[in-house]
Amino acid sequence: MAGTKFGFFDANVRSINLDVETPETIEGVLHREPSLLKCIGCGNCAAMCTAGHFTDLRFYRLNLYLKRGLVNEIRKEAQNCMLCGKCQLTCPRGVNIRHAILLMSSIRP
């Protein structure tokens, strides 16, 4: 791909490139915790989150990062989680959030 288009560098483009293949690490997480596929991003998990009032941990966003292939964004946010499970006990779609976070915070970019 050409590095420049109309004078802009690709590196400056904010758009998520959905044309690239999903990295294996992400496939791995989805494989080990398939309930992630059920998430509708309702935000209940973040509303409930014990860490959410102090940090930028937003589980629904982590899941979006994961699905969009944005590996680098995940760990920084995920590491705030205390695994308390309050989100999971009330998630309307039955996502195994604690397990997912353990897997996500294991991802090495």
């Binding site: 935000g43 973040a46 509303a47 009032h53 629904y60």
Partner: peptide, 11 residues
């Protein structure tokens, strides 16, 4: 009341 505003990503 506590809530999450998902479009802003903030509580």
């Amino acid at each position: 009341v506590k809530a999450e505003d998902t479009l802003l990503g903030r509580p």
